[in-house]
């Protein structure tokens, strides 16, 4: 995802002279191409995230289109008030790019984990929030940034995320939720690059004769509430999966839709527990310990679906 971001940014940077790249002293060698093309529009702000956001707001207010880049927690929670006031309240068209969302920086520890970024940012008005699920979607987000008149947050993984969609042309519109896999036995709704793991879980479920649909939501803010309402009305079983804690995340949004519908769907959300890990772990291990590996997702869904089937049978009896 990171390479896709820089590759796409490089194209935009060359034909849109409003684009300015700001980094909080991270991304060694990754923005060299930008610097070679126009060094004046590449600014290493140093390890000063708060001022970097304000600086970007000022650049935007003077007519430019800044992209601000750092590791997820540093460019989100570290400078949250600057994002809220300088970007959102003052409506500055700045794209905040967090690399390493979720557990992508696993062994680096909780200082580098980005498992609460969406929750912290999702309470801010006017902020578009993108959680792309593969490198193609990252490119579409960068393209969409060019026409934004307000701030946006782009949540990247690191650099190992596989392509889910076969080509850019076959990648669905990022602005809308999309059915990534058709199904008849309920639905799993997900967001971001954990989609890859969710699809593996769906494969495992298929072997057991359970075929849930899989839907991904890439534009998390503004939240597609009406789509979610129709979706949850359509399926008896709904489960959400996200590489994020529960607070402010996808599961809570869908839970609200389910609760407000008042028709008792069978619902479950899978999230990362809001805890600090007790030791050093890589991403896969952290996900497994959070019940978010493909097997755990499949097992959770299996249990939820069977409960719903049993309830249905009881009703029918």
């Amino acid at each position: 995802m990171r390479d896709a971001f820089f590759s796409e940014l490089n194209s935009l940077f060359r034909h849109d002279r409003r684009v300015v790249f700001l980094t909080g002293d991270l991304g060694y060698k990754l923005f060299d191409q930008l610097k070679e093309f126009d060094p004046a529009r590449v600014i290493n702000c140093g390890i000063r995230e708060a001022a970097m956001i304000g600086y970007a707001a000022g650049l935007a207010k003077s007519g430019l289109l800044p992209f601000v880049y750092s590791i997820t927690p540093f460019v989100t929670l570290r400078c949250l008030e600057q994002i809220k006031i300088d970007l959102c309240y003052n409506t500055a068209n700045v794209v905040v790019v967090g690399v390493g969302g979720g557990f992508a920086y696993g062994p680096n520890g909780p200082t580098h984990h980005g498992i609460d970024d969406v929750g912290a940012l999702s309470c801010l008005p006017r902020l578009t929030l993108w959680t792309p699920c593969d490198p193609h979607e990252v490119r579409l987000c960068v393209r969409a940034a060019a026409t934004l008149d307000r701030p946006a947050y782009l949540r990247l993984g690191r650099n190992k995320e596989p392509n889910i969609f076969a080509s850019l042309k076959q990648t669905p519109d990022i602005a809308k939720p999309a059915v990534v896999r058709e199904g008849r036995d309920g639905v799993i709704v997900t967001s971001g690059f954990i989609l890859h793991t969710v699809l593996k879980a769906a494969d495992a479920l298929a072997l057991q004769g359970i075929y849930p649909a899989v839907v991904r939501i890439t534009t998390f803010r503004p939240f597609p509430a009406e789509y979610a309402r129709l979706l949850t009305a359509q399926f008896g079983t709904v489960m959400t999966v996200e590489e994020h804690i529960a607070n402010g995340g996808l599961g809570m949004e869908i839970a609200r839709v389910v609760a407000e519908s008042g028709d008792g769907r069978h619902f479950r959300m899978l999230t990362i527990p809001a805890e600090f890990p007790d030791a050093c772990y890589d991403r896969d291990t952290l996900l497994a310990r959070s019940g978010l590996d493909a097997d755990a997702i499949a097992t959770a869904y299996h249990g939820l679906f069977r409960t719903q089937e049993t309830a249905k049978t009881d009703r029918d009896d």
């Binding site: 304000g54 707001a57 000022g58 207010k61």
Partner: peptide, 25 residues
């Protein structure tokens, strides 16, 4: 009023960004 202020410590960075933006253009 160029931008909202009130929470302290925001204005100088925004002003610096504006100054940089003006220079770039």
């Amino acid at each position: 009023v160029e931008c909202a202020t009130g929470s302290l410590g925001h204005g100088l960075a925004i002003g610096a960004g504006m100054a940089q933006g003006l220079k770039l253009q």
